[in-house]
């Protein structure tokens, strides 16, 4: 990866992180923070979009460079694993085991399904 591309990917990641801050903050403001819904919404929408971007790029409708900037950069910075892991562990250590399992396993299963849906949709659009 060239230094110029690395810089663009990093800046796109910064924008993605700000988008995550805003979405998570709005979800907390509206729905409260008894459950980590903000992170879940961010990770599910980001996974769907990355599947779509990957499908479009695989089908040739999106240049590889755009795939790296949007996928690795923006969506990589937008979604987060570390916060999701800490939130699930905090639910578990608070004794909220059902919420913890749904948060950890349900979030991952749903994210993979949405990414797969995005991938199929992207390939169909490009094909």
């Amino acid at each position: 990866m060239s230094p110029a591309l690395l810089l663009v990917v990093a800046l796109a990641g910064g924008l993605g992180a700000v988008a995550r801050l805003v979405v998570d903050g709005e979800v907390r403001r509206r729905l409260g923070d008894a459950l980590p819904r903000g992170t879940v919404l961010v990770n599910l929408t980001g996974s769907l979009l990355l599947g779509l971007v990957t499908g479009l790029a695989t089908g040739g409708l999106l240049p590889p460079l755009a795939q790296v900037v949007v996928g690795t950069g923006f969506l990589g910075g937008y979604t987060t694993f570390s916060t999701a892991a800490v939130e699930a562990v905090r639910l578990a250590t608070a004794g909220r085991w059902t919420a913890a399992v749904v948060d950890a396993v349900g979030q991952l299963v749903a994210a993979v399904l949405l990414a797969g849906l995005g991938l199929v949709a992207g390939l169909a659009l490009a094909g």
């Binding site: 992180a17 979009l49 694993f81």
Partner: peptide, 9 residues
């Protein structure tokens, strides 16, 4: 750490 880790990938 939010930018370093990723869920979408």
């Amino acid at each position: 750490l939010g930018g370093f880790t990723t869920y979408s990938a």
